[in-house]
Amino acid sequence: MSAQTTSTQDSNNPDAAIDPSHWQEQEQSFLRKLNEEKRRKTISQLTLNLLGVVLFLLLWEATPHVIPWMNILLFPPPSDVVGTLVELVESGELLENIAISMQRVLLGFAIAAVLGIVAGLFTGRIALVQHLSDPVLHGMRSIPAIALVPLSLLWFGIGEASKVALISWGAFFPIWLNTFTGVRDVPPVLVRSAKSLGATPYQTMFNVILPASLPFILVGLRQGIGIALIVLVAAELAGASSGVGYMVATSHQLFRVDIMFIGIATLGFLGYMVDRLFTFLQSRIFPWYSSK
């Protein structure tokens, strides 16, 4: 009886006749192809990226030569700009300006981050504070930071303080608003869990509400750093004696469009790098955030 059952099973099972090494080979060749495919995609993507940059540079180089009415002083081709770039790097002027600008951005951003997160926590959690501060904060949020440049110069002088103050002002609002939204929308079930597990209001705030709203806070910080870079330029274009924005402003007076181009490109590059750094740190510091 039992022998019969076994033989029936065997005849019903088509795998039984095939050597298990067959499946392993199939699996390995499948994985090989998968890897091959992935590598090919990455390489072709990188090649296209590079090609795009080269095409852009070629087009830029050709434009002032091809279009007869174009003034080469107003539209210097990359071959000219590269020479100036080397000079600026060698003299240390460019790096010095970058360092000064980044210092202003980071200091202003740090102040904005602390104030924005604290304000967001309180306005998002305590109805009294929210309603009390709502009209004033939203009213101030609508003022473009650039409109405050002259006031800032009068109040804080032409030194570092006025730049840092303006940057903090600009970066504060997106950080505050996003933190507020995140804190307000923390699922009530998490707060209830914390309380029933014995958390005090203070512990609930820092061990539950803060980490639960972190995804929103990170969005706010990212927007904040973007705005910080914009406000930086506004602050440096007027009443500064150093920084990348200042470099752009003076090159205008010196009629040096090549330097201006370098300044503008530097600002773009800085913005891009800061954003990439941000996403990188985010995935490193908050692994659970990406696993959700």
């Binding site: 079930v189 998490l190 209830r192 869990s193 029933s196 639960a212 972190l214 659970w288 955030y289």
Partner: peptide, 20 residues
């Protein structure tokens, strides 16, 4: 008088702390 550790609660779902 309010929630406390003498009464444990299990909710329907999504009550774990996702960052822990």
């Amino acid at each position: 008088q309010g929630p406390g550790p003498d009464r444990g609660v299990v909710f329907q779902e999504y009550a774990l702390f996702s960052w822990l």
